[in-house]
Design a protein around this nucleic acid. Sequence first.
DNA 1: ATATATTGCGCAATTT
DNA 2: CAAATTGCGCAATATA
Lengths: 184, 184
Amino acid sequence: MMSDSRVSSVIQEWVSSYQGQSHSSPSGNPQMDLLSYAQGLRPDDRGVTEQMMGLSYMPYSTSCLSNTSNTAASAHHESHSPQQDYSPFLHPSLRAPLAKRSISKDSPEYRLRRERNNIAVRKSRDKARRRIMMTQQRALQLQDENQRLQLRIGQLTQELDTLKHLLSQRHMQGAEEGTGDTSI
Amino acid sequence: MMSDSRVSSVIQEWVSSYQGQSHSSPSGNPQMDLLSYAQGLRPDDRGVTEQMMGLSYMPYSTSCLSNTSNTAASAHHESHSPQQDYSPFLHPSLRAPLAKRSISKDSPEYRLRRERNNIAVRKSRDKARRRIMMTQQRALQLQDENQRLQLRIGQLTQELDTLKHLLSQRHMQGAEEGTGDTSI
DNA sequence: ATATATTGCGCAATTT
DNA sequence: CAAATTGCGCAATATA
C-alpha cells in the first residue's frame, strides 16, 4: 500500500507545475536583523499550494487504506519493505521502490544517514521558526509605521486645509486678480 | 531503554524542580526553553537573539541509544511501558504514572487515542499553516499600503510647500499685516 | 480528570 | 551523494 507521503507527493508534483519556483533565501547572514529582512520579503516560500481545505482531517491511512498494522507495537511508518504498490495506474515515480535497498535499518550507514537528516531537520525547522517570527515582527512594525504615516497624513491634510483657507481669504481680500487655483 | 522523549521529560522535571514551579511555566513551553538550552544546541526561536549561529544541532539522544527495536522494522519511540520514574524527589504530579495504564499500544483504546491525536495534529498544523500564510500576506499588504501612504505624504508635503510659498508671496505683496504664521 | 490543541522530534519521501 | 524541505505520526504538554 502506498504511504500517505507518497500521495501528497502526487499532489505536489501535480501542482508544482503551477507555481514557478521561489525559495531564494537571500539570508546568507543568519543574523539578518528585522529591518533588512523587511526589504526582501518573500511572499511565500513554498507550499502556498497545498490546502484544499478538506475539513475532514480524516486519517490518511484510515477509511481508504488498509493499514494492516504489521505486528505488535510498531505502528507508524512501518510496513515498508513488505508489500508494495505496483499498481499500473499510478505515476511511475509513485509506484513501489522496487526492491530498492537493503539498508535494513540496522546498517550503521542507515543510522548515520538518519542522524544527519535529523540534524538537518532540526536546523531547517529552526530556520522556519525564525522566518515566521520575523515575518510577524515585520507585520507589527509595518502596522505601527502605517499608523504613524496615517497620522502624519492627517496632520498634513489639516495643515493644508488651513493654508488653503487662509489663501482663499487672501484672494478675497486681494479681489480681482484671483486665479482661484490653489491646487498644485 | 528510555526514548528521547522521556529524556526530555526527565530533564524538564529535573529542571523544573529547581525553578520551584512544578509545571505550567508562566509563558511559553517548558519543553524547549529548558531542554534545548540544557543541551546547548538549539539556537531556538524564542530569543530573537540567535547569535551563536555555528551551533551544532547535535542529536538529542544519539550516541547513547541502542535502538534495538523490538521486532523488525519498528524503531522510533518505542519502549514506554517499562521503566518509570518513581523518584520521591519530584513533585507528585510529576512522578511516574504509577503503573497507570497498560494501554500497551495494542489496546484499541490506545489506537483510538492516537488516531484522535493525529487528527488534532493535522488540524492544528493546518491552522498554523494558514495563520502563517495570512501573516505573510498581511505583511505584504501592509508594505504596499505603506508605500502608498509614503507617496501620499510626499504629495501633500509638496503641495503644502507650494501653498506656503504662495502665501509668503502674498504676504510680501500685502506687506505689513502679515502674522507670519502658517503653521497649524 | 478527560478531550482537544500544541509542539519538539524522528522517519521517510522529495527537493535542491 | 549530501543537505534542505515537508508531511506524518508519536509522545509530552498545554489548554479548555
